[in-house]
């Protein structure tokens, strides 16, 4: 449906995005994950034809979109809900009707479609409220209603549930699945790994503006025993202590920046200690490096460059990894 090739984007001489290939398929939900500043918002704005890439092409249904007129036409089929959406200082209903009116809908027809979109997000009661009176969470829901009212072919969302509690998050994502069922290509950015996994068909990781073919580091599928609280998850030969009430098949994530690296075992409260050789040191641009340590499985640990130098770590060094049970995410 929507595909991009050789996308590069620079701000003030700095390359913030370098993605060689990216595609969104009809009737699918893609999650973009990555930390803040990894380029998620940038790629969404490029894909929404709101900003022009410094180089590269974006094609809609195979046809490359270049000229102003092509971009304008494409924007009729692709819409973006921003992370902190802007609502026009009118009523909620007028906000939702805005895009419909641009497409020629008028009067009761436009009003009915706007109301239906709001109802799908349980926001029908907000219809006559002035937009400037809404809370952050309400603004997000209205902005999503405003987008789905247009029945876009491609629906892009930047942290669509950023201001929502768990119940509201689930509701937002159920609406995205409905959009998928309608045939839309849906893509949402999230820094919340759990949501990204749970609500998407496909995960694309962005780091420093580059898309990873590998999904985020230190993800393991395993089966947890019954019971509550602290329990041991088997990851290959390792037993990892986790704290969760979940059981059965789950995905574990150990955020690399939560992994402590030392030469000798630490006396600490952390429940997980593993030892093994460093098999790879990947250089990131910037102050951080990622070590891959073979402790029976490959575990990634992110430390600062200065820490790496002070500890004198190189490929082959035997190191101890220490991880708090609470740092292990279960989803």
């Amino acid at each position: 449906m929507l595909s991009a090739a050789g996308l590069r984007h620079t701000y003030g001489g700095r390359t913030v995005l370098a993605v060689d290939a990216f595609a969104l398929e009809r009737g699918s939900v893609t999650a973009l994950v990555g930390p803040n500043g990894s380029g998620k918002s940038t790629i969404l704005r490029l894909l929404a034809f709101v900003e022009r890439p410094s180089s590269g092409t974006i094609a809609l249904d195979g046809a490359e979109v270049h000229t102003a007129e092509q971009r304008r036409r494409a924007r009729r089929r692709v819409t973006l809900v921003e992370q902190a959406p802007y609502l026009f200082p009118t009523s909620v209903r007028e906000n939702v009707e805005y895009g419909l009116r641009l497409r020629g809908a008028r009067g009761p027809a436009a009003a009915a479609r706007a109301m239906a979109a709001l109802e799908r997000l349980h926001a029908g009661g907000l219809a006559n409220r002035p937009a400037r009176e809404l809370s952050e969470g309400e603004i997000q829901r209205v902005a999503l209603a405003r987008a789905i009212a247009l029945e876009p072919d491609v629906l892009l969302l930047d942290e669509p549930a950023g201001a929502a509690d768990r119940a509201a998050t689930a509701q937002v994502h159920r609406v995205l699945l409905e959009e998928r069922a309608r045939g839309a290509a849906v893509c949402f950015a999230s820094h919340h790994l759990e949501d990204a996994y749970r609500w998407s068909d496909r995960l694309v990781a962005l780091a420093d503006g580059r898309a990873g073919s590998v999904t985020p580091e230190n993800l393991f599928r395993t089966t947890l025993p019954e019971g509550t609280g602290s329990k041991v998850a088997e990851i290959g030969p390792l037993g990892v202590v986790v704290v969760t009430d979940r059981s059965g098949p789950v995905t574990l994530a150990i955020p690399p920046h939560e992994v402590l690296v030392s030469h000798a075992p630490l006396q600490s409260s952390a429940r997980n200690t593993f030892t093994g050789p460093v098999v790879r040191i990947s250089d990131h641009t910037g102050d951080m490096v990622t070590l891959t340590v073979d402790v029976g499985v490959d575990l990634a640990a992110r430390i600062t460059r200065s820490a790496l130098q002070e500890l004198g770590i190189h490929v082959g060094s035997r190191v101890v990894l220490t991880i708090k049970a609470l740092a292990v995410q279960v989803f």
């Binding site: 034809f49 026009f88 641009l102 247009l150």
Partner: peptide
């Protein structure tokens, strides 16, 4: 707010409608 222009664009506004939204704000 730069979001005014972007919002109008993402909702399918053409050049004049986008200008109008910015001028309105």
């Amino acid at each position: 707010d730069p979001r005014v222009r972007r919002t109008a664009l993402t909702l399918g506004a053409g050049r004049w409608r986008t200008h109008l939204a910015v001028a309105g704000a």
